[in-house]
């Protein structure tokens, strides 16, 4: 059964697009046929992060308006097998999305893919509501600061009332927390919320903690999802989050500030 995942946050600029690209790539690397759909109509960041902007002929909105077939708009990723991108329009705005159009496309994607990852726009308006409406699973992206956590909480309330599952009275959408741009050192000094603080407020299971990392900027400038950067801490953290999503038990890294590894060094000398 295909699963629709929405990557959402409420607040802008917290790392939804970075996460959508990494997560979709991670699922494809694990052999799941995956498509990542850009719901941020008018802004179109996903194709830059995925480095496919020069290959866009038709987009999501063209398909919604029946100006193109879904197969014509889907872009096959150059690097990763099993991975496709459905880019959005840079010209239209969010009003171009209709529930019927989105429903038709999601239905069609469900037939062909294992996972459909929806990159939500910021805010709590139409675009964000459309992105979460058909989802089975929500990844709540939040930074360790109050405003972002509050917006995530707001979003969880909307998922509870405004999703299709809620409207139909089906089993509620699964919800997982992904804390991004986490700086364990600053959190331990009380300059940011800690993982524990965020978990206390939002009270949903933790999927992963992505550290604040320069590797993200480097990756997005090169148009390579950070999860492909095996050396980077953020890449590792995303790989672990995907593994957890698929049911694996992986310990959370980057939650504690890294201490000088004195004992490891001593032991290392013996090894």
């Amino acid at each position: 059964m295909a699963k629709v995942i929405v990557v959402t946050s409420g607040k802008g600029g917290v790392g939804k697009t970075t996460t959508s690209a990494a997560f979709a790539t991670g699922l494809a690397l694990r052999g799941r046929k995956t498509v990542v759909v850009d719901f941020d109509v008018g802004l179109r960041n996903l194709d830059i992060v995925m480095d496919c902007e020069r290959r866009v002929v038709y987009d999501f909105i063209n398909v919604v308006k029946r100006e193109a077939k879904l197969s014509e708009a889907l872009i096959r990723d150059k690097r990763t097998k099993n991975l496709f991108i459905l880019p959005t329009s840079q010209i239209q705005d969010k009003d171009a999305l209709t529930k019927e159009g989105v429903e038709r496309i999601i239905k069609e994607l469900r037939r062909d893919f294992d996972y459909i990852v929806c990159d939500s726009p910021a805010g709590i308006e139409k675009g964000a509501l459309m992105a979460l409406y058909y989802a089975d699973y929500a990844v709540l992206v939040t930074n360790p600061e109050i405003a972002s956590v509050r917006d995530a909480d707001r979003m969880l309330g909307l998922i509870q009332s405004k999703s299709r599952r809620a409207e139909l009275g089906d089993e509620p959408m699964a919800q997982r927390l992904l804390i991004t741009r986490y700086d364990a050192k600053r959190a331990s000094r009380g300059e940011m919320l800690s993982v524990q603080d965020v978990e206390d407020i939002l009270a949903i299971p933790l999927l992963g903690v992505i550290p604040e990392s320069r590797s993200i900027l480097r990756a997005s400038n090169q148009g390579i999802p950070v999860i492909l950067d095996k050396e980077s801490d953020a890449g590792q953290a995303y790989t672990d989050a995907v593994a957890r999503f698929l049911g694996g038990k992986v310990e959370h890294k980057f939650v504690q500030p890294s201490k000088p590894k004195f004992f490891q060094k001593v032991l290392g000398a013996w090894a």
């Binding site: 909480d153 707001r154 509870q160």
Partner: peptide
């Protein structure tokens, strides 16, 4: 019977 979230 559930928590009341921001905005609700």
């Amino acid at each position: 019977n559930q928590r009341v979230r921001s905005g609700q």
